[in-house]
Design a protein around this nucleic acid. Structure first.
Lengths: 331, 331
DNA sequence: AAAATAACCGAAAGCACTTTCGTAATTTAT
DNA sequence: ATAAATTACGAAAGTGCTTTCGGTTATTTT
């Protein structure tokens, strides 16, 4: 193990001067800095982050809290995309990313053990005491899915996006627009329904509770069931705005089984733009969340927070309508 | 910051004894152990992993190398599933998981900086010098996608699975079975083709190169193109075994456009069992990789390696055929 | 009863780094 | 010329923990 002592000896300076050089103190002359850096390169010196952290009380580590027990794994489309973008951004700022798991001692204690400088709570359950402890502690946190008191939150502008969805469908000539709503326990579910309602009002379309049906999960089967309810309405909608693509897949299946054709007979609009959306038949019109922008905003917010700068408590990131073949002008 | 000194003072023992208690040395009497643990709980003492690592030269940290520049993000179905399972398993063994990025100083140096005890190379590019350095260094490594010399490799048994696929299709009465092969630069692509060929031989079915077409990417569009080639054959296959589900989605589209019906006219079998496979119309028969088993095996292997135990250099994990509606008895 | 062994505990060195503070040398101001 | 300020560097203390080694009791063996 080559340490600063080696470097110092070879360079003919003290360990202190080596440390100062490596940390870019200006009280070292350029001359000796160059001399030291040369030795550092030759020797292939590598800093020891443990020793550094011990001394500075900073780890350059960002914790990721990603509750497994929700059954949402790393593979979740939205979260993984946001995490990926977040990771890239904090790495650019010189941080490394470590997973914080709550087993044994809980999230907060684990964060303290590892001495993380900040944490990104990707998704977790606020009924978990360890999580609440973490949120209430003095460790900088950001989140995208778990609103809490004073913890900065960055997520998609569900309301505005839903308004836009309704407007878009109306612009195609649809007036009887249904909504398949998500579980109202989730913010996404609530806000998308809110936006739908607001959009209908803004467009002066009548809001008919009979064509708003609730799916109890963000999956395909519940979309299938919900669509069947809509189809049995005495005055079925000509367009349906669905709270997620996966449910849209189920809805499409129901429509097809009813002998109707998506696009021609009934327009379908989803939310998420999952990978398969473009490959469905017909390709699905949907709303794409800007996962990259969200990840970046989260990173920027957390970095500011760690630097004790002011941050915005809630940021809503716009989504984009991706127009494909599942929505058509009403004939 | 409550440290061992606090605990020691309150318990009326030395710091050494506290440390030994916390690390379960047997040279501390049960009596004092209990006394110390009581104080530890009361004070909410938390160990400092930096200090510990500095002293022990072990970090209890496992590095994840996940090359971004391949464009394969965290969201990749296979990798994220394997990583998830791996993570769970090493966490159970008391390790934490940290991402190792190669920027600035390269993978190997970054591993040394963080002092990781082992690393899981999920996916990376062997043309990257930093990666090769890492593989050649003395840090325990495992991988599932990047075969290298003496680095233990755990992955799906592609060959046997493909043989099974052919056997399954044959058992449904199909004899003219085509294959859409993946890029031959990837092991998966090569091995699945190999298995297909072997399966055809074992079943005494004639191997016709005209109905083996190569897709140059693991995506939907290349499956679409490949299928169209197969459909234009003067004696089209009645069943197609496709190297990945995404390509199968494209193939299904091509079949439908040709006015044929998947299942009834032509049986389709994919590989991966991606989330959407069960939701396609018709639901896709496919081969499911056992991502959990692979992740667990990788974790177990790495843990053994870190403990300097013997390990197997290559492990092939069986896959399961998931039978759905896209394959039917040949009429 | 003496000797050998075992059980229990603490002092202190070591891990690799940061940072304060003092000092000597040099430069600038007076 | 002298005083004051600036620059460049090092000594040393501190960070929180582990582990060796030796010492003191207590227990067992002869």
């Amino acid at each position: 193990m080559i340490d600063m002592k080696h470097v110092a000896k070879l360079a003919g300076v003290s360990v202190a001067t080596v440390s100062k050089t490596l940390n870019n103190y200006r009280e070292v002359s350029d001359e000796t800095k160059i001399k030291i850096m040369k030795i550092v390169d030759e020797l292939g010196y590598i800093q020891n982050s443990s020793a550094r952290s011990l001394s500075t009380k900073r780890s350059n580590l960002i914790g990721i809290v990603y509750s497994e027990h929700l059954g949402i794994g790393l593979e979740h489309y939205y979260f993984s995309g946001v995490l990926e973008a977040f990771k890239k951004e904090v790495e650019n700022a010189g941080y490394d990313v470590v997973f914080i798991n709550g087993r044994d001692i809980g999230y907060l204690k684990k964060c303290r053990v590892r001495g993380v400088d900040g944490v990104f709570v990707v998704t977790a359950d606020t009924s978990d005491k360890g999580l609440v402890d973490l949120f209430n502690a003095d460790i900088p946190c950001v989140t995208t899915d778990t609103p809490w008191n004073k913890v900065p939150l960055v997520y998609s502008d569900n309301v505005q996006s839903s308004i836009n969805a309704v407007k878009y469908l109306h612009s195609l000539g649809h007036t009887r627009i249904a909504h398949i709503a998500g579980p109202q326990a989730s913010i996404a579910g609530r806000e998308r329904l809110d936006g739908y309602r607001q959009g209908m009002m803004e467009e002066n379309l009548s809001y008919d509770p009979d064509i708003v049906v609730y799916a109890n999960e963000y999956n395909s089967i519940s979309g299938y069931g919900a669509m069947n309810i809509l189809l049995s309405n005495e005055n079925p909608p000509t367009a349906v705005y669905i709270m997620c693509d996966l449910s849209a897949v189920g809805a499409i299946q129901a429509i097809r089984e009813a002998g109707l054709k998506v696009g021609r007979d009934i327009s379908i609009m989803g939310f998420d733009d999952i990978q398969i959306a473009a490959n469905l038949i017909p390709p699905l019109t949907t709303i794409r969340q800007d996962r990259v922008a969200i990840g970046h905003a989260l990173a920027a917010t957390l970095i500011k927070l760690m630097n004790k700068e002011e941050v915005q408590l809630v940021s809503k990131i716009p989504c984009t309508i991706i127009e494909r073949e599942s929505t058509k002008v009403r004939k």
